[in-house]
Design a protein around this nucleic acid. Sequence first.
DNA 1: CCAGAAATGTTATATTATAACATTATAGTA
DNA 2: TACTATAATGTTATAATATAACATTTCTGG
Lengths: 160, 160
Amino acid sequence: MIAISQQATKRVLAQAQQQCLALGSKLTTKRSQVLEGLLVAAKAVSAYELTDVCRDKLGYDLLPMSVYRILEFLENNQLAHRLNTSNKYIACSHITCDHQHQPPQFLICKTCHKVEEVEVPTPIMESVAKATRKAGFTLASSHLEIECYCNDCDPPEAAI
Amino acid sequence: MIAISQQATKRVLAQAQQQCLALGSKLTTKRSQVLEGLLVAAKAVSAYELTDVCRDKLGYDLLPMSVYRILEFLENNQLAHRLNTSNKYIACSHITCDHQHQPPQFLICKTCHKVEEVEVPTPIMESVAKATRKAGFTLASSHLEIECYCNDCDPPEAAI
DNA sequence: CCAGAAATGTTATATTATAACATTATAGTA
DNA sequence: TACTATAATGTTATAATATAACATTTCTGG
């Protein structure tokens, strides 16, 4: 999960711009604004929530349609992830540090939508992939979304 | 994934009724119709698609609102699963056979929505649970939804 | 500067889901 | 049997998420 100071944001956005250029695309003003929204949100947010964050916290005027388009762009450029489990979006954690990561597994709090990216040991993921192939399927993505409750949010009674 | 003959359907529905009674609830006519719809769909379907299946293939007249309510009931009675990944629903595979299963892991084809329930070996799932606890989270569910492409559906070019 | 491509704006609408309240059916009990 | 409480279903409205289609603006290479 990303939680980032204001001065670091600027650096991260500049780095993201470099990353886009390397992929042959451009981090335009609007795209940068949406990414900044994800960074300040510091949790998984829906496209419409992100529109609100950009307007209320950053003063950026974006329409939901644009936000959806830009989120798609950010995904394609490894700057954001869509969490299918909750229909929400987060900034990729790797953009706030310099080293390479394993494909992340996402722990998603069902209550507060906090997201932690953990690295499940490679052999474990290999086993999952193997069971998948054995059943005649191919993994669509190297990341799993794992629905959890974080320690700040007690699981609902029914789940205990 | 459930694919089931007409004569078997009747037996499964009767069995489901017993299972409900054991849990202190009732498989009413409408609920049975929705479950039958899931059985004949034989893949993951949305609530609205299920409404169509029930009407077009079975002649049952159900409103989407009722279908949502009934799907919730079926989930609570271990007769159906909601796939958060795709906002679709399936019948629990266990209701078509008599033995106990491990908590299932779902392989979901992103293209055709076919679902296979596989049993990932317990030690593997233990490792995942352990990594989760270490990160300060508690698993919300003992099943994982794993997005895949089945062998009948080629992965889209971008995913290769 | 011009033409084509890329990005964004705009409007409309599809899809998934829930809220709120009315009506009907069922089960337990006097 | 009739009464009552609860469960189930019906009905209407609307929220939340997402995409389609086409117009306009901006950028880029020649």
